[in-house]
C-alpha cells in the first residue's frame, strides 16, 4: 500500500502539529458565535447564514471556501460591519462589532480603488479619514507603497495600472490603517493564473512580516490550501460551517508543494465536501435549453 495515497488530511507532521499548538496558544482576535443572517427580499426570506461558529487567533491565516452563493461574501461583509446580522455575535478582541472600523481592513474582489485619486492618495485616504495630518498620511502611504512594490507608481491613477497592481494598492490601502485583521473577499478572483500566483506569494510575504491576521475568501481550492493555516468550509442553503480543516501542508509554502501528499489529501477532502453529488440545477439554469443546429458541412468535423 502506497503511504502517499493512504495519507489523510487529518494527519499532521510533528512540525505542523507544533505550529498549530503555538497558534492555539495565541489570543483570539475574532470570535463568531452562532451567527445567522436572513435577507428579506421580494421573493421572500433567504437564510444566507445559520449557526456559524468559529474563531481566529492572532496572526492566523484563515481561508473560507464554499460553493458560490453559500454566504461567503455575506459573512465577510458582516465581519467588516458593512452588513448587519440577524442573530449571534461577532466579537473582535472581545468587543462586539458595530459598523465598519479601522481595526478591520478589507480588500474587495472588484474594482474598489478610488478612480479620482492617485495611487498615493488612495493609500493616504484611510489615515486622513482617521484624523492624521497630510504629511503623516503621506509618509505612511509611501512606506506601504514601497512594501507592495509600487512606490514608482505613486502618482499614477488606478486606471493606468494592471489588475494585479490595483490589488496591491488595495492591500496597501487596507494595511496602512494597521488593522487587527485583514478581510479579503476573493481578492485575486479576477486575475490571470500567473499574476494570481505571484500575488499569493506576495501576500504570504506581507503576512509574515507584519502583525496582521488574515481572513481570506476564495472558491479556488488550491489557493485556499496554499495560503491557509485553517480552512473554513461552508455549505449552501443555508450557509453553515461544514468543517474546519487544519491544513497539514508545512510552512514555508512553495508552489512545489502543490503535488505533495498533504496537499493532495487536503484537496481531495475539499473536493469531497464541496462537490459531493452533482447539485440539482437551479430553476434558471433549467430554463436555458440550448438547441444546437449544425451550421457546418456534415463532413467538416472538428473532433
Amino acid at each position: 500500500m502506497n503511504p502517499n495515497t493512504s495519507l489523510s488530511y487529518l494527519d499532521q507532521s510533528a512540525d505542523v502539529k507544533a505550529r498549530f499548538d503555538r497558534i492555539n496558544q495565541r489570543e483570539t482576535i475574532l470570535e463568531v458565535r452562532n451567527l445567522g443572517k436572513r435577507f428579506r427580499s421580494q421573493q421572500g426570506e433567504v437564510e444566507a447564514l445559520r449557526g456559524i461558529n468559529f474563531s481566529v487567533r492572532r496572526r492566523e491565516f484563515v481561508c473560507v471556501i464554499g460553493p458560490s452563493g453559500c454566504g461567503k461574501s455575506t459573512l465577510i461583509r458582516i465581519l467588516a460591519g458593512l452588513e448587519s446580522h440577524t442573530s449571534g455575535d461577532v466579537l473582535l478582541d472581545g468587543k462586539p462589532v458595530k459598523g465598519p472600523g479601522q481595526d478591520r481592513g478589507m480588500v474587495f474582489q472588484g474594482y474598489s480603488l478610488f478612480p479620482w485619486l492617485t495611487v498615493k492618495k488612495n493609500v493616504m485616504f484611510g489615515p486622513q479619514m482617521n484624523g492624521r495630518s497630510h504629511d503623516e498620511a503621506e509618509r505612511d502611504a509611501r512606506l506601504w507603497l514601497d512594501l507592495v512594490g509600487l512606490d514608482k507608481f505613486a502618482d499614477a491613477y488606478p486606471h493606468q495600472l494592471s489588475g494585479g497592481m490595483r490589488q496591491r494598492v488595495a492591500i496597501a490601502r487596507a494595511l496602512v490603517n494597521q488593522p487587527r485583521i485583514l478581510l479579503m473577499d476573493e481578492p485575486f478572483g479576477a486575475l490571470d493564473a500567473q499574476t494570481r500566483a505571484k500575488m499569493q506569494s506576495h501576500l504570504i510575504d506581507i503576512w509574515k512580516n507584519i502583525d496582521v491576521t488574515v481572513l481570506f475568501i476564495t472558491h479556488d481550492l488550491d489557493e485556499a490550501i496554499y495560503l491557509a493555516d485553517r480552512i473554513l468550509v461552508l455549505k449552501a442553503h443555508p450557509g453553515e460551517v461544514q468543517e474546519v480543516i487544519e491544513v497539514p501542508v508545512p510552512r514555508p509554502r512553495t508552489p512545489a508543494q502543490f503535488n505533495s501528499p498533504e496537499f493532495r489529501a487536503t484537496k481531495a477532502r475539499l473536493e469531497e465536501l464541496i462537490h459531493p453529488a452533482p447539485e440539482p440545477e437551479s430553476e434558471d439554469e433549467q430554463a436555458v435549453q440550448p438547441h444546437l443546429i449544425r451550421f457546418t458541412n456534415v463532413m467538416d468535423n472538428v473532433e
Partner: peptide, 24 residues
C-alpha cells in the same frame, strides 16, 4: 464597492459625501 471601501477605511457621514460620493 467604492462607498463600502471608503466606509471600511473610516469615512462616514458628511465626509463620505464630500470625499467619496461627490468626487466619485
Amino acid at each position: 464597492t467604492i462607498i463600502e471601501a471608503a466606509r471600511t477605511l473610516g469615512a462616514r457621514g458628511v465626509k463620505l459625501l464630500t470625499k467619496v460620493v461627490v468626487p466619485g
